[in-house]
Nucleic acid binder design. Structure first.
Length: 464
RNA sequence: GGCGCGAUAGCAAAGCGGUUAUGCACUGGAUUGCAAAUCCACGUAGGCCGGUUCGACUCCGGCUCGCGCCUCCA
């Protein structure tokens, strides 16, 4: 079965045909590192991690780049507010981003270009755009002249006149036309800046992605991903820059554009500017990263996903069931084979149909709970492997059930050892048929959030 | 003003023109010292009004409501 992807460019679910099947190129817009990312920022990272895993399984090589924007006016402001240098601040939050994403079980991209390491490529691109008559200098700024690009608006399906009609666009006096956007802007001495043909300055937001794509991945790439809010103007402008710079003609800058929907809170878009957000970091205080990841996969990536406590509790309950089926299962399942693994793979190939893929995991769990012996073990391997396609179910079931937040440490709650001691005592009480004492211990542990389960193999416990 | 998205059972969330999505919750049963976990059983839901069709949640038209982009934004 072929891979199908919804392409914003065609507004259709298209069969994926790579430029070169031996090396797929994919680019995801990464974070601007000026504070902690929220769960909405994490959605594309997780979703397109599933895509990356899919491509890696189906093609010899995948080159996946995710940029880090480390030059930006928000960074400048945050560093001033925190009394911290720009470099310190951006590397601090880049590190935090990596930590958070690791908790979400995302694979590391093959390339993670930083804007500040690619200024030369941007300057070069801007120069070419000026030479070709697509950009002009005005009052220390360099602007892209939108009217020179006859394809402008192709991705977002809009034209400049209609956009300006009801929009709130501030028109700077130095713009030739209201839709023109900044490629380069002047920096004062207190701001980060680089020498350029137009004086000391810094790049506009859109140019970094175009320049880094060209430099690291090529003239035309297979897939470019990001949130829906990037379609316009960011990605539209990337296309304008990329195609006008290299005379693409009828050739695309990017063949497949994929955009994820928003995380909402009570139906409204989660956004830093609105303030209605949860950082990944604070959510990790209450739930394992895998629960966050699972929750992000419960809805189709192009649909909105409303975020609430209940979203997380349901994701937790689902994972409890899946890990329950993996008790005593071995970790390595690379060689597992099962029709349901293929079934799940086909769902992912169908424009990342993760809700359906998750239903396959549940189906396997049900099968496991109904069997014993070798067949059970085979099915467990199948579940393990199927889960890995989604970046799930990679840990020991016991570890899963014993999870507690990092901040819990020894101050609060019971240690694993003391829980085991209580279980020993209760075991003796049960052997003595002292069920009153046995139940008392179970109730006491329950008050501390520890749930006991008696089975033929002995007593197990989980942190509820 | 332009462009786009959504409305499914108690909750979350999919596919599909006619056959069980799935998970959680609920109820009954099996199992258990009692529980928990697990297994079995159990839900004709698809915003409103028309149309196409032998048949529509699924296609077409209209309406209502909600959301988003056009400004930094995943």
């Amino acid at each position: 079965m072929t891979i199908k992807l919804h392409n914003t460019l065609t507004q259709n679910k298209d069969v994926f045909t790579p430029i070169n099947p031996d090396e797929i190129t994919m680019y995801v817009c990464g974070p601007t590192v000026y504070n902690y990312v929220h769960i909405g920022n994490a959605r594309p990272v997780v979703i397109f991690d599933v895509l990356y895993r899919l491509l890696k399984r189906n093609y010899a090589s995948v080159k996946y780049a995710r940029n880090i924007t480390d030059v930006d006016d928000k960074i400048n402001k945050a560093s001033a507010d925190n009394n911290e240098t720009i470099g310190e601040l951006s590397s601090r939050f880049a590190d935090a981003f990596h930590e958070d994403m690791a908790h979400l079980q995302t694979l590391t991209p093959d390339l993670e270009p930083r804007a500040t390491d690619n200024i030369d490529a941007m300057i070069e691109m801007i120069q070419t755009l000026i030479e070709k008559g697509h950009a002009y200098e005005a009052q220390g700024h360099v602007l892209f002249q939108v009217s020179t690009d006859s394809n402008y608006g192709k991705l977002s399906n809009r034209n400049v006149e209609d956009m300006l009609a009801g929009a709130r666009v501030e028109v700077e006096s130095y713009k030739r036309e209201p839709g023109d956007f900044v490629l380069w802007k002047p920096s004062t001495d207190d701001l980060p800046g680089w020498e350029s043909p137009w004086g000391r300055g810094r790049p506009g937001w859109h140019i970094e992605c175009s320049a880094m794509i060209n430099k690291h991945l090529g003239k035309t790439i297979d897939i470019h991903c990001g949130g829906q809010d990037l379609i316009f103007p960011h990605h539209e402008n990337e296309i304008a820059q990329g195609t006008c710079c290299h005379d693409h003609g009828s050739e695309n800058f990017v063949n497949y554009w994929m955009h994820n929907g928003y995380i909402t809170m009570n139906g409204e878009k989660m956004a830093k500017s609105v303030g209605n957000f949860f950082t990944v970091r604070e959510l990790l205080e209450k739930f394992p990263g895998e629960v966050l990841r699972f929750a992000l996969l419960t809805a189709h990536y192009r649909s909105p996903l409303d975020w609430s406590e209940d979203t997380l509790l349901q994701a937790k309950a689902s994972l409890d069931r899946l890990y329950g089926a993996l008790r005593d299962a071995q970790l390595d399942a690379a060689n597992a084979q099962h029709v349901k693994i293929d079934e799940l793979e086909n769902f992912i190939k169908d424009d990342l149909a993760t809700p359906q893929a998750l239903s396959v995991l549940h189906s396997l769990a049900g099968d496991i709970n109904k069997t014993q012996g070798d067949e059970k073990s085979n099915l467990q391997q199948a579940l393990r492997k199927a889960g890995s396609f989604l970046g799930l179910l990679s840990q020991n079931a016991d570890d899963w059930f014993k999870w507690q937040p990092e901040s819990a440490n020894n101050e609060s709650g019971l240690s694993d050892d003391s829980i085991d001691a209580f279980i020993e005592e209760r075991l003796q009480a049960r052997a003595d048929k002292n069920f009153a004492r046995s139940d008392e211990i179970r109730d006491e542990l329950k008050e501390q959030g520890i749930i006991l389960e008696d089975s033929k193999e002995g007593t197990r416990w989980t942190r509820g």
